[in-house]
């Protein structure tokens, strides 16, 4: 069992947890993910590692409550335990001194972009960052991102904080302004955001890396449920990724695959809310 040591409510739907998992923390690297399971009935949920502390033996995860399992997770508190906390899985981010790089984090994707930005900064890169969310209350870690970035643009879709824009707008401006200087872009966020980041960087021919969070079960290459179609053929996100060349990804198929279990997700949420209401009534 893996104990939750600390919890921070970042917004109504975004929660941060620091979990005791010394073995995972010993090996964790930026870009990798863990799989968590709440209890015996729980599903295996892949979450990108937001931070790790080898000394303390902890892993930080940030998640957005989008379905039954994440809603349930959001109700857990320090002292509660996860039944499963496996990792670190997937390949780490390839960090070198590339020169000038851009890190884009959208929504809950700000969490996994942070350790990558930090590692890139530590490797001597000039790091230009963009973080964005639908509205102010969904933003977090602006301070952390600022600390590891040479420049930081903050934007919201509704203009409630920072610049009123989608992340692709400042990204395009940066690519134009630093034409030829920017050698690499990382983007993590909702699939639709990553798709448009890919479309934005493609004309500039800047290699762009995205971290995909697809449906998966085991996270070790066993099920193939996470497969993503690239121009060179299908790959498994868990074993071959989770980072891929954004210009290779068949985004429409990826988006379709993410919608596959929508009916079941809806049903699970209804059932869960019903159960919560009954419990609230005693």
């Amino acid at each position: 069992m893996y104990k939750i040591l600390h919890k921070k409510v970042l917004s109504d739907v975004n929660k941060l947890m620091v979990v005791s998992a010394p073995d995972v923390a010993r090996k964790a690297q930026a870009g990798q993910f863990v799989i968590v399971r709440i209890d015996e009935q729980g599903e295996r949920i892949p979450l990108t590692i937001a931070d790790y502390d080898r000394e303390a033996g902890t892993i930080t995860i940030i998640f957005q409550e989008v379905g039954k399992s994440t809603m349930h997770m959001g109700m857990l508190n320090p002292g509660d335990e996860f039944a499963t906390f496996t990792g670190p899985l997937g390949h780490e981010t390839e960090v070198e001194n590339y020169g000038t790089v851009v890190c884009v984090g959208g929504g809950v994707g700000i969490a996994p972009i942070y350790p990558i930005a930090r590692a890139l900064k530590e490797a001597g890169n000039r790091v230009l960052s963009i973080i964005g969310a639908r509205s102010k209350e969904l933003l977090f870690w602006e301070d952390r991102m600022r600390a590891v970035s040479d420049e930081l643009v903050v934007c919201t879709d509704d203009g409630s904080y920072g610049r009123k824009a989608l992340v692709t707008e400042p990204l395009k401006e940066m690519l134009e302004e630093h034409r030829g200087e920017i050698t690499r872009v990382w983007a993590i966020g909702p699939a639709i955001m990553m798709k448009f980041v890919a479309l934005t960087t493609e004309p500039f021919e800047v290699p762009t890396i995205v971290s995909l969070n697809t449906i998966m079960i085991d996270g070790t290459g066993m099920c193939g449920g996470c497969r993503v179609k690239l121009k060179e053929g299908a790959k498994f996100v868990c074993a071959d990724g989770p980072e891929f060349d954004a210009h290779q990804v068949d985004w429409d198929l990826l988006l379709a695959r993410q919608r596959y279990y929508l009916d079941e997700e809806k049903r699970a949420v209804e059932q869960w809310e019903h159960k919560c209401r009954l419990e609230a009534q005693g």
Partner: peptide, 12 residues
């Protein structure tokens, strides 16, 4: 994952 017992078990 005991998906045949969904939604009692979470995995569909």
């Amino acid at each position: 994952m005991k998906g045949y017992l969904f939604p009692e078990y979470d995995t569909p």
